[in-house]
Amino acid sequence: MKKKLVYTLASIVVIFVFVYFGIGFYLAYTILRIDPTCGLHEGSLPNTWSTKADHHEYSVLAQSELRKNFPVEDYHLEDWQEVYFPSRDQDIKISGWLFNYFPNRPVVVVVHGIFPNGKCKPESNLIASLLIKNEINALTIDLRNYGQSATVSEYEHLGLSEYADVLGAFDFLQKVGFKKNQIGLHGISLGGTSVIFAAEKEPAIQAVWLDSSLAEFKMILRDEIARYGMPHDFGPAVSFAGKILTGIDPTKLSPAFALTSQQHYFFTHGDKDLRILKHHFDFLQQYANIHKIKADFWLAENSYHVDAMFKYPEEYSLRMKEFFESNLSK
């Protein structure tokens, strides 16, 4: 009788462990498995991109209408240079579009968010256009495993490896004539982690703009698990599975802790963001205040995820101009 009870309990434990980690692997796979395409924006160029291509995929009507009615033609750019350069992980080739319009003026590296994504998406193209309108040059890039850049993994590394691609862009811009103190960074959504980690490694980078960035690993892990309708108890299983799938330690994904007191940051976020919740913005602001980080903050009103650039393009543009011109050499 006792032996049967032991076998029964052991079986229950084995089944529980199998189910627990099985769900963890499913969630990690779903969150991290990269779609290397640009989705409905595949093939878009700086003079053809459109927010109308996928406006119908936004579940929030306000986001859909904002993109459906955005005057994209006003922001198309006709001149750019297709470039390739090595990541600081030297065997990885990175693709970019260089908008080098203004001699002896600053340049900003624009880094896209999570899949499906790339320099083809409206966000990167719009930022480049807003910068050019203010006589600031731009370089939009595809991170590794995206677009025309090299594919080296099937899984997203969340900026913990991709920061080297941003540093490759920093090195490339110096080779084509820009000075270190003329080069700034702009990270969109998950792209923010790549640029924050890149700046931490390269003190010469003085100006870093973050649009809708996450702040801290435990927060984003809880948020992501909740998006799939699961309790946060699956956090350890998802974290473990993520490490197995990617070979990186996802618990290091806390860009807030990589901010330095020697660099300048600008954080913007939508007050209604449902993808990367506002508490990440609040965490970053509190952390910056406590640790004397030189940072400015703009919480865009009535805005969802990365809405501000489409809803308030003129204000967004002027804020970027002021920030980058104040912190980069002209």
Rank of each mutant, 00 (worst) to 15 (best):
L5N: 10
T8D: 02
A10D: 03
V14R: 03
V19Q: 00
G22I: 11
G22C: 11
F25P: 14
Y26E: 05
Y26F: 13
L27Q: 10
T30I: 01
T30F: 05
I31N: 04
D35H: 02
P36F: 01
P36C: 03
P36W: 00
T37S: 15
C38R: 03
H41D: 14
G43R: 11
L45W: 12
T51I: 02
K52F: 02
H55S: 15
A62S: 15
Q63P: 06
K68D: 10
N69V: 07
P71V: 07
P71T: 03
V72H: 13
E73S: 12
E78G: 11
W80Y: 15
Y84A: 01
S87L: 07
R88K: 15
D89M: 13
D91G: 07
I92Q: 06
K93I: 08
K93Q: 11
I94P: 03
G96R: 09
W97V: 05
W97N: 10
N104R: 05
R105F: 08
P106T: 04
N117R: 08
A128E: 09
L131S: 03
L131W: 09
E135T: 08
I136E: 02
I136Q: 09
A138C: 11
A138N: 08
L139P: 00
L139D: 06
T140M: 09
L143G: 01
R144Q: 15
Y146T: 04
Q148H: 10
A150K: 09
T151G: 12
E154Q: 14
H157I: 04
H157E: 09
L158A: 05
D165M: 04
L167R: 12
V176C: 01
G177C: 02
K180C: 07
I183F: 05
L185G: 01
I188P: 08
L190Q: 14
G192S: 14
V195C: 07
V195Q: 00
E200Q: 12
E202T: 05
P203V: 03
Q206P: 06
Q206T: 06
A207F: 03
W209L: 10
L210C: 13
D211C: 03
D211L: 07
D211P: 00
S212Y: 12
L214R: 04
K218Q: 14
I220V: 15
L221H: 03
R227M: 03
Y228W: 14
G229I: 08
G229S: 10
G229D: 11
P231W: 10
D233A: 09
F234A: 00
F234Q: 00
G235Q: 06
G235A: 15
V238H: 02
S239C: 09
F240Y: 15
S254D: 07
F257K: 15
L259P: 02
F266M: 04
K272H: 14
L274R: 04
H280K: 10
F281Y: 15
F283K: 01
Q286R: 11
A295P: 08
A295H: 06
W298P: 05
L299R: 04
E301H: 10
N302Y: 08
Y304V: 07
V306P: 02
F310L: 14
K311V: 04
R319S: 01
F323V: 12
F324E: 05
N327D: 09
N327R: 03
N327S: 04
L328W: 04
S329Y: 04
